Simulated scan of single mutants.
Amino acid sequence: MRLGLMHGDGIGHEIVPATRQIVDAALSSVHAPPVEWVELPLGSTAIDTHGTPIPDETIDALGQLQGWILGPHDSASYPERFRGQLTPGGVIRKKFELFANIRPAAAFPGVKAMVPDMDLVIVRENTEGLYADRNMAVGSGEFMPTPDIALAVGVFTRAACERIARTAFALASRRRNHVTIVHKANVLTLTTGLFRDACRTVAAEYPHVVVDDEHVDAMAAHLVRRGGDFDVVVTENMFGDILSDLAGELSGSLGTAPSINASETQVMAQAAHGAAPDIAGKNRANPTALFLSSAMMLDWLGDARGDRLLSAAARRISDAVRTTIASGIATADLGGLASTSEFSEVVYAHTLRR
Rank of each mutant, 00 (worst) to 15 (best):
Ala257Gly: 08
Gly227Ile: 06
Ala198Pro: 06
Ala314Tyr: 02
Ser77Ile: 15
Met219His: 09
Glu162Ile: 01
Val38Ile: 10
Val234Pro: 07
Arg316Glu: 03
Ala218Asp: 15
Asn286His: 03
Val347Trp: 03
Thr340Gln: 03
Gly12Lys: 03
Ala275Arg: 02
Ile329Leu: 14
Asp245Glu: 08
Val35Met: 05
Leu334Val: 07
Gly84Thr: 11
Arg196Ala: 12
Ala271Lys: 03
Leu98Met: 11
Met136Ser: 14
Ile59Phe: 07
Thr265Tyr: 00
Met238Phe: 13
His7Met: 11
Thr157Gln: 08
Ala132Arg: 07
Arg174Cys: 14
Ala105Arg: 00
Thr167Glu: 14
Thr256Gly: 14
Ala289Ile: 03
Ala349Cys: 08
Thr58Gly: 05
Val182Arg: 04
Lys112Tyr: 12
Ala204Cys: 13
Phe143Cys: 10
Leu334Trp: 00
Ala106Asn: 13
Gly139Val: 09
Val232Asp: 09
Ile54Lys: 05
Arg196Ile: 13
Arg353Ala: 15
Gly154Arg: 12
Asn126Val: 10
Leu298Lys: 04
Met114Arg: 10
Ser327Ile: 07
Val347Phe: 00
Ser75Ala: 12
Gly255Ala: 07
His178Lys: 11
Val224Met: 14
Ala220Trp: 00
Val153Cys: 09
Arg103Val: 01
Asp217Asn: 02
Ser253Leu: 04
Ser28Glu: 10
Val38His: 05
Arg308Cys: 14
Thr58Arg: 01
Arg305Val: 08
Ala105Ile: 02
Thr146His: 06
Ala106Lys: 12
Val138Asn: 12
Phe195Val: 11
Pro207Phe: 01
Ala332Gly: 15
Leu188Ala: 14
Gly43Asn: 03
Glu342Tyr: 03
Val224Ile: 15
Gly12Asn: 06
Glu205Lys: 02
Asp333Trp: 00
Glu57Tyr: 01
Val233Ser: 11
Asn177Asp: 13
Glu249Ile: 15
Pro72Ile: 07
Thr45Val: 15
Leu243Thr: 13
Ala150Arg: 14
Asp56Ala: 14
Ser341Met: 13
Ala320Gln: 00
Arg166Asn: 09
Arg175Trp: 04
Leu246Asn: 09
Gln85Phe: 08
Val38Trp: 05
Leu3Ser: 04
Gly43Val: 10
Ile122Asp: 03
His50Glu: 13
Ala247Phe: 06
His178Leu: 12
Met297Glu: 00
Cys161Gln: 07
Ser341Arg: 09
Phe291Val: 02
Glu80Leu: 12
Leu243Arg: 08
Val321His: 00
Val224Gln: 11
Ser244Trp: 02
